[in-house]
Design a protein around this nucleic acid. Structure first.
Lengths: 173, 173
DNA sequence: GTCTATATTGCGATAGAC
DNA sequence: GTCTATCGCAATATAGAC
């Protein structure tokens, strides 16, 4: 198993975030993270010297994933806002997992709140540039936030996207 | 100070929820709740025999507040959907505090997830009855969820409501 | 780079005095 | 109805072997 150090660090971050998603901050203990990643607690603490370092690592990875997502949005051209909403409802992608993990952490850690705020600002800027209409951009972002929120609590999202697209069509979108 | 038992229980629930809102689940320890409510840990455990009982008490109180809010929505008549959005952005009310507390708890406790789901269903039913348009009702609810989500992470909500009302006006609302 | 102890702290909960 | 004292346990983190 994995002697590559950066590969082990990624595995530890994956384990941390997936425990955060499933059990919340109380479930993401160092013991549980190490076990899930298949290393000992000592092994974990070699790569991340403290729990704070683990949190920092997760938030930094989120920042990279968001930057990539912003590029993907821009590549969607005319469908940019639709791409945004479709991916807001998505579950199981690396970005989604990091984002939910950050949401869990945000209830206790200001760095996570800040990371979430920066993420939202980046998305708003792209939406607003594309639509040229701040009211519409903010409304669409709030709808995306709403879908993220519901998914966060395990609520079904199947009908939501269709309903939203229906309403957007009435607005000429 | 307060010899009335139900008054003390209310004060304990207030303390629990406000600690949950400010510091998350990790900050809402029995010690901290008791100190904030001005009683000893033993005193707290007389009223709520366990942490689970404290959680249950908070979720039951939420249920009552939501039932009251649904009545207030109905009383708003034509402005029902606007009333819903205005109160979604509100902070500091008892309902708001209970709702955020439930959001914190939901990351770790399924009872809280269930309570949140029931709350959303109640609101959707009222919105849908009023608008007679499920797509619109769900979209408006998602916008409300989005505002709740942002407020949850301390993000400014000042412009949001104005932008949303602007877009709703374009839809004849 | 990964492991097994172990020190230390703080949590939820119980027992029993007042 | 409220208190103090204390037990048992789990969490973060350190020390040092391999």
């Amino acid at each position: 198993m994995a002697r590559n150090p950066t590969e082990t660090k990624e595995r530890l971050l994956d384990a941390f975030e997936s425990l955060l998603d499933e059990f919340g901050t109380a479930g993401a203990t160092l013991d549980a993270v190490a076990a899930k990643a298949g290393v000992s607690k000592g092994g974990l603490l070699y790569h991340f010297g403290s729990k704070a370092a683990l949190i920092k690592g997760s938030l930094e990875r989120l920042e990279h994933l968001v930057a990539e997502d912003v590029e993907a949005m821009k590549a969607a051209g005319d469908r940019l806002h639709l791409y945004y909403l479709e991916t807001s409802a998505e579950i199981g992608t690396p970005l989604d997992q990091s984002l939910i993990a950050a949401g869990r952490l945000a209830q206790e850690h200001d760095e996570a709140k800040t990371a979430l705020r920066k993420t939202r600002e980046a998305w708003f800027d792209v939406l607003n540039d594309h639509l040229g209409d701040p009211a519409l951009a903010m409304t669409i972002q709030l709808i995306g936030d709403g879908m993220y929120f519901n998914q966060n609590f395990g609520l079904s999202q199947d009908e939501a996207l269709g309903h939203v697209k229906n309403v957007l069509a009435r607005l000429g979108l």
